[in-house]
């Protein structure tokens, strides 16, 4: 059983978020974690192709665009993670037979990319005004060679670590909606990382709240 030793504080890199920056999509947001940056845009509820329509829910489609080259299998698996998280928190039954499209464009990857995708997706969904039952955020933890837990690792830290885990955490009860892990780790380490992510998610949710408050601060 590995114990987490050393400092009792882990850090999240500096965040930035900008909403409604594109004029065509219904909702757009750019999310920055340190040097990792993602641009998210949503369209919907809009027309759906008959082959893809679902009679009682909206069809959610997530597209992840890499910076160089065409989307590959890695992007498909990331899309699946983001889609499952969004489907858990959106109220899809309010818009049956319509389509919701979420497009995520990678701007720069410096580690913790899946959690940045999740955070940008959540902010874009809030900006579009789609009905949600809860918010979600993504937190990445890495376990380095000494057994220390590092949150929000950079690309260099991810390369040297033994395991990298990303969790999507919901805002109401801080439970894990989705997890994606890579590497080997013990059950105890997993639970510790989940606990750390839940703590980190509080900061992120507070940031969401502050940015939305700032957005509505002007009385029009």
């Amino acid at each position: 059983m590995m114990e987490v030793c050393g400092s009792s504080n882990v850090t999240l890199r500096e965040f930035g978020c900008e909403q409604s920056l594109l004029s065509r999509p219904d909702g757009s947001a750019s999310f920055i974690q340190g040097d990792t940056s993602v641009l998210a845009a949503t369209y919907g509820p809009a027309e759906v192709k008959v082959s893809k329509e679902i009679y009682d829910r909206a069809t959610l489609e997530v597209l992840i665009q890499p910076k160089v080259g065409l989307p590959s299998v890695r992007q498909r698996s990331q899309e699946q993670c983001v889609r499952e998280t969004c489907e858990a928190s959106l109220l899809l039954s309010l818009h049956p037979r319509s389509s919701l499209t979420l497009i995520l464009q990678l701007i720069h990857d410096d580690g913790s990319i899946l959690s940045c995708f999740l955070n940008a997706a959540c902010m874009a969904l809030i900006d579009a005004g789609l009905p949600m039952s809860c918010l979600f955020c993504g937190v990445t933890c890495a376990i380095d060679a000494d057994g220390q837990i590092v949150t929000d690792p950079t690309a260099a830290q991810e390369k040297e670590s033994r395991a990298v885990m990303t969790f999507a955490i919901d805002s109401t009860e801080r439970r894990v909606i989705m997890s994606s892990t890579k590497g080997s780790f013990s059950v105890h380490e997993l639970q510790q990382c989940i606990a750390v992510s839940q703590k980190a998610s509080e900061k992120i949710f507070q940031f969401y709240r502050d940015s939305v408050k700032r957005r509505y601060s002007k009385t029009l």
């Binding site: 509820p45 579009a128 005004g129 957005r215 509505y216």
Partner: peptide, 27 residues
Amino acid sequence: LLVCKSGVLRHKQPHMFWMDSQQRRYV
């Protein structure tokens, strides 16, 4: 009572409440 859209909570007498949100898509 759950809030499902972000926005400002508004009130009209005597007991009507709603969320005032900025949105572009029409339902």
